[in-house]
Amino acid sequence: MNTLRSEPHNPKQARATVFFITIAILIAAVFIISMNTGSLSMSPLDVIRTLFGQGTDQQKLALFDFRLPRIVISLLIGAGLAVSGCLLQGVVRNPIADPGILGVNAGAGVMVVLFITYFPNKTIAPVWLLPCLAFIGASLAALLLVMLAYKKNIGLSPTKLILSGIAVAAGLNALMIVLTIQLDSDNYQFLAAFLAGSIWGTDWRFVVALLPWLVIILPFVFYKARVLDLLNLGDHIATGLGAPVQRARLTFLAAAVALAASCVAVSGSIGFVGLIAPHIARRLIGTTHKVLLPASALLGALLVLIADTLSRVIDIPAGLIVAMLGAPYFLYLLAKMR
C-alpha cells in the first residue's frame, strides 16, 4: 500500500500526533468540568478527592451514581455514533451520510411513539424497557433497509443503499407524524426531547449494556480500516487490488448499524455527531481511515461530552447543543479549506 502514501507523511504524522494529544487533553479538561457541573456544586479539588475515595457520602453519591455514569455514557455514545457515521460515509461514498440515514433514528422514534401512545403512563414501565424498544426499532429499520437494498448476484450498491435509506427514514418519519399529532401535550414534549437527542439512560446499567458493543466493534473496525480506504477508490479498483468489496461493505455496514442502534437506544437521535465528527476529523488530519476512525471517535466523544455538560446547565437537549456547536465550527473549516 506504499503507493497510497507517496506524499511526504512526516508532517502529516506530526499533525495527527498533535491532534490526538490536543483532543485527549480537551477531553480530560471537560471531564473535570463536567464532574463539577450540576446542582451540587463541588470544587475541582473536591472532585479529585472524592475520586480517590476521600469525599463525603453526598459527594460520592453525586459523583459515582449520577455524574460519572452519565459522563461515561456521553463519551461512549459520541465515539460510537462518530465511528458509525465515518463507516457509513466510507461505505456509501456520500458525504452527507450519517447514522440517521439508515433510518435507525426514525425506527427508534416510531417505537418510542408507539410506546407512549399505548402506555401513556410511562412511569409504571421499568426503566430499561424504553431503550430496549428503541434498540429493537432501530435494528428493525436498519434490517429492513439492508433487505431492500441488497440484491442477489449484485450485492449492495452504495447509491441504492443510501437512497433506500432516505426513503425508509422518510416513510417512518411520516408514520411518526401521523401518530404524533394525536398525542397529548406532555407526551409530545417527551417525544420531542427524545427526537432532539437527550441522554436519558443515565445509570451504570446502561453503561454495562452499551460497553460490549463498543469494546468489540471499535477495535475491529480500526483493525480493518485499510479496507475502507480501498473501498473509497471505487469498486473496480478495490476489486482489482484484491479487496473483497461486497463482503467488506456488508461487514462495515453491519458494524455501523450495530453501533448506531445501540447508541440511539440510550441517547435519542444525536445523529448529527455521526455526520460532523468524521468531517471535522477529515479536514484536520486527512482521509486515511486508520487515523480517521480513531480521530472521529475521540472528536465525537468530546463533542457529546461538552454538549451533555452544557445541557445540564442550560436546559436544552444535548443533541441540539451538538449541532449548535459543531455546525459553526464545521462551516468555518469548510470555508477555510481550499
Binding site: P95, I96, A192, L195, A196, F272, L275, I276, H279, I316, P317, G319, L320, I321, V322, A323, M324, G326, A327, P328, F330, L331, L334
Partner: peptide
C-alpha cells in the same frame, strides 16, 4: 456539506 450543516444548525435552534 454547507447545506447539511446549516440545516442542522437552524433545525437545532428551532427545536430548542
Amino acid at each position: 456539506l454547507a447545506g447539511a450543516a446549516i440545516s442542522a444548525l437552524l433545525l437545532a435552534f428551532s427545536q430548542g
